[in-house]
Design a protein around this nucleic acid. Structure first.
Lengths: 115, 115
DNA sequence: TGACTGTTTAACTAATTAGTTAAACAATGA
DNA sequence: TCATTGTTTAACTAATTAGTTAAACAGTCA
C-alpha cells in the first residue's frame, strides 16, 4: 500500500464505500447461505424490491455479487468469497472495540458507585 | 459474521465508512512511516489544515488514529496497525480486479483489431 | 500581558446517496 | 395476444458529508 497513485486510492475507497452501508452488508450476509432472488432478499430483509435491486446493482457493479436470470426471477450470489475474510477481520476489530468500550463503561459505573 | 444484530452491522458499516474516503486513506498511508502533525500532513497531501483536521477528528473518533499534543502542535499516529492488514487485503483484491479489467480491455482491443 | 504559531470549530455550499413511489421492462404461461 | 409475476429504472425527497473560509481556541515565548 506504500506507493499508491490517486486512481488506485480511489478504487480502494470505492471498495470500502460499497461495504459502508448496513443494508448492503445485510444483503451480503444473506447471500452467505446461498443464492437468492430479489424478492426473497426483500422479504428476508424487510424492505422493498426496488431498494434491494438498487443495492444489488451497486454490489454487482463493484464485483461483489454475480447476477443470473432463472425463469423470470433474477438470482444473485457472492462473486468473491474474499469479502468474508475481510468482514471477519473487521468483525474481529469491531468486536475488540466494543468489548473495550464495554469494559470502560463498566469501570465508569463502578467508579460512580464508589463515590 | 453469520448472526449479527442491527447495531453490530451499523458498527461494521461505520468502520468501512471511515475508510471509504480517498483523503482519509492518504492520511493513514502518510502515517504509516511515523507520527505527523496536522500541518505536516496538510502540506504533504496538498490541502488545508482545516480539512485534514476534520478527517483526523473522524479517524480518531473511529479509533484508527491516536492524538498527542507536543508543544503547540498536535501529532497523530496509527492507533491500530490492524488496518494495514485490512488495506493490504483490499489492495490485493482491487489489484486482481484491475488486472482482470486490463486483460479484458486488451482482449477487446485485439478483437477489434481482427475485424 | 501580548504576539506568534498551530489546531479546531462554525457556518456555509455543492455533491452524493438511501429510500420511496410509480412507471417501465422482462419472462412465463394461458 | 394478454395477464401475471418479478425486476429494474426514473423522478423525487431528505439526509449526510467533503471542502472552503473565517473565526475561535491552545500552547509557546518574549
Amino acid at each position: 500500500m506504500e506507493n499508491l497513485d490517486d486512481t488506485a486510492i480511489a478504487h480502494i475507497a470505492n471498495y470500502f464505500q460499497a461495504l459502508a452501508e448496513p443494508m448492503r452488508l445485510k444483503v451480503l450476509n444473506a447471500l452467505r447461505s446461498g443464492d437468492r432472488n430479489v424478492g426473497e432478499l426483500a422479504e428476508l430483509l424487510g424492505c422493498t424490491t426496488a431498494n434491494i435491486s438498487k443495492h444489488l446493482s451497486l454490489l454487482a457493479k463493484s464485483g461483489f455479487v454475480a447476477r443470473e436470470t432463472r425463469g423470470n426471477a433474477v438470482y444473485y450470489r457472492i462473486a468473491d468469497p474474499a469479502i468474508f475474510d475481510l468482514c471477519n477481520l473487521v468483525c474481529g476489530q469491531v468486536g475488540k472495540r466494543l468489548a473495550a468500550q464495554a469494559e470502560m463503561a463498566a469501570k465508569l459505573v463502578s467508579a460512580q458507585g464508589k463515590d
